[in-house]
Simulated assay, not measured.
Amino acid sequence: MRRRPFAAPSATPAELATARQAASLLLGYPDEELLARLPLLRAAVAPLPPALAGPLGRFLDHLETTPLAQLQTDYVDTFDLRRRCCLYLTYFTHGDTRKRGMALLQFKHLYSRAGMTLADGELPDHLAVVLEFAALGDAVRGERLLQEYRPGLELVRVALEERASPWASVLHAVSATLPPVDAADREAVLRLAQQGPPAEDVGLDPYGALPFAPPEFIPQPASGASP
């Protein structure tokens, strides 16, 4: 599949890295440390292009006005209990099959080459980790990973939008750091929505039983980030 050139003309590589690093932090489990970083995140996000600063700023507003206990409850309910909101990208391409283990090893190899070490118990395909790699490790390979797993990323984004989740703004900003969704990725998103990820004999229930958006509900990223 042919991909468009890296990034958007309205965002510099440094701005893309800042947006991805901010999104990485905002997709982690909310805690006191994250709230303490709010002033720093505000200062980092404010100068970004509107397509990036807008959605990230909206989520920062939500963090500032929501009690921490509520944030934590909502995070677990959103990302840990709902398959379509799963932040582990290889889940969408490999499900809980043996092939997923090999994909995770490939992620670790890329990180190792960039000098990045994962924390104990941290899986390398979590979107927050991939975004940190793209921001601080290897921008080119990180971009490729996000593009390779774009259908799963967009599936999560639309699922969050359907739920009117505040985290949808963060996924919207992530999508805005990438080229517009192409036809092949749109088709892949729809297949995931209808069939779910691959499964072995003890696989997972398909998404087919769950309502999902029609093709026209998968919008392009904001025009400010179009290549």
Results as ranks from 00 to 15, higher is better:
M1P: 15
M1Y: 14
M1K: 12
R2L: 15
R4E: 15
P9A: 13
A11Y: 11
T12E: 06
E15I: 02
L16S: 08
L16F: 00
L16G: 06
A17Y: 00
A19Q: 03
R20F: 11
A23Y: 00
L26D: 05
L27K: 03
L27F: 10
G28A: 02
Y29W: 10
D31R: 07
D31V: 01
E32G: 04
E33N: 08
E33F: 06
E33P: 00
L34C: 03
L35C: 03
R37G: 12
R37H: 05
A43E: 15
A46W: 02
P50V: 14
P50F: 08
A51K: 04
A53W: 07
G57Q: 06
G57C: 03
L60C: 03
D61H: 07
H62T: 04
H62R: 06
L63V: 08
L63I: 04
E64C: 04
P67C: 01
P67I: 01
L68Y: 03
L68V: 01
A69D: 04
Q70I: 00
Q70Y: 00
Q72C: 02
T73Y: 00
V76P: 00
V76G: 02
D77N: 10
F79T: 05
D80M: 01
L81N: 00
R82V: 15
R82G: 02
R83H: 07
R84T: 10
L87R: 13
L87I: 06
L89P: 02
T90I: 05
Y91T: 04
F92K: 07
F92Y: 15
T93K: 08
T97H: 13
T97P: 09
R98T: 11
K99L: 08
R100M: 09
M102C: 04
A103C: 10
L104H: 06
L104Q: 05
Q106N: 11
K108V: 01
K108L: 06
H109K: 10
L110D: 09
A114W: 05
M116K: 07
T117Y: 03
D120V: 11
L123K: 07
H126C: 04
L127K: 08
F133R: 03
A134M: 04
G137R: 02
D138V: 01
D138Y: 12
D138H: 13
D138S: 12
V140I: 14
R144I: 01
L145Y: 01
Q147G: 11
Q147V: 06
R150C: 07
P151I: 09
G152E: 05
G152R: 10
L155V: 07
L155I: 11
V156D: 02
V156G: 06
E162Y: 07
A168E: 08
L171E: 05
H172L: 12
A173S: 10
V174G: 06
A176V: 08
L178Y: 10
D182L: 09
D182K: 09
A183E: 15
R186V: 15
E187W: 07
E187G: 09
R191L: 12
Q194V: 14
P197M: 10
P198R: 13
A199I: 05
D201V: 11
L204H: 05
D205S: 10
G208V: 10
A209Q: 14
P211G: 12
P215N: 14
P215L: 11
E216F: 13
P219F: 13
P219H: 15
Q220Y: 09
P221W: 12
P221Y: 13
A225V: 09
P227D: 13
P227M: 12
